[in-house]
């Protein structure tokens, strides 16, 4: 049952069909948001958005545009479904997720509609695997109401520099404090751990800083445990945009380049932990 010979009639039953020559292009980006089991899939003619949430405080979205797929057919304006992400990742990597050039797993992902399983056809080296993942009642993703018009401060960094900072962060600290300011210290990451406080400063003229647009001084704390899952996305990414809005909500947007050089986005929203008095 090679992927290519599926009958037209069978194809017509599905509201969503997405083909990908290299399943890793999907599995890698889903791994980056795989910190909870339940993933909400929202498909529109523009592509696929996959949402994972934790504790109603953090939300991760992976965006895979329609043109990343070799074929992306959707019969409705919006198709929503929810599946177990851990299961989906095991299915996508059923052949081991080989990183060897020239060997890749081809994927066809199909969905018939509400109540039906999400069906994956995977093929590598003439071996075909069919996975039927039962879908769950899709939950409504939290609306963090983060609009670009409310953004107070924004910086864009080469991920390289943030990776370095994150690998050195004191993980005994319960929170990560982010300071963004038009004046000194510009962009500062602080931790308050067992062995004292640490600050990690970025100058606004650093080579690593691609864009620096800060309007007012803002200091917010975010739970380390909520931010930690985002390091998976950071590791994959080449650029990251850090934004905060007037309420202190944090948005981290990671630009991820896949095996074929195409660009996808992963976005994290996190609500602030404690209000910090700005005069402090």
């Amino acid at each position: 049952m090679p992927l290519s010979t599926q009958s037209q009639a069978e194809e017509e039953q599905y509201v969503l069909v997405a083909n990908l020559d290299n399943a890793r292009n999907l599995s890698n980006i889903l791994k980056a948001i795989g910190f909870k089991d339940h993933a909400i899939f929202t498909a529109t003619p523009n592509g696929l958005k996959v949402t994972v949430e934790d504790s109603k405080c953090v939300q991760a979205n992976a965006f895979i545009q329609a043109d990343i797929f070799q074929k992306f057919t959707i019969k409705e304006d919006l198709v929503a479904l929810q599946v177990n992400l851990t299961v989906l990742l095991d299915c996508l990597n059923i052949f081991g997720g080989s990183t060897v050039a020239g060997i890749s797993t081809a994927l066809r992902m199909c969905y018939r509609g509400y109540g039906y399983p999400l069906t994956l056809f995977l093929e590598e080296g003439g071996v075909v695997t069919v996975c039927k993942i039962n879908t769950e009642e899709p939950e409504e993703p939290i609306d963090f109401d983060f609009c670009s018009s409310n953004v107070t401060n924004k910086v864009i960094l080469q991920s390289e520099s943030l990776k370095e900072a994150f690998s050195e962060l004191d993980m005994t600290s319960e929170v990560l404090q982010i300071t963004m300011s038009p004046s000194q210290p510009y962009f500062r990451l602080s931790t308050f751990g067992n062995s004292g406080s640490a600050h990690y400063d970025y100058s606004k003229d650093s080579d690593m800083m691609e864009l620096f647009r800060c309007n007012e001084t803002q200091t917010n704390r975010y739970k380390m445990s909520l931010l930690k899952p985002s390091t998976k996305a950071l590791a994959l990414s080449c650029k990251v945009s850090v934004r905060t809005d007037s309420r202190g909500f944090l948005s981290l947007q990671y630009l991820v380049r896949n095996d074929d050089g195409q660009i996808c986005f992963v976005e994290f929203f996190c609500c602030p932990d404690v209000e910090v008095d700005e005069d402090l």
């Binding site: 049952m1 399983p117 075909v128 695997t129 069919v130 996975c131 993942i133 039962n134």
Partner: peptide, 9 residues
């Protein structure tokens, strides 16, 4: 309960 997977050789 969550998934059925079949690999065909």
């Amino acid at each position: 309960d969550l998934v059925s997977v079949t690999t065909h050789f």
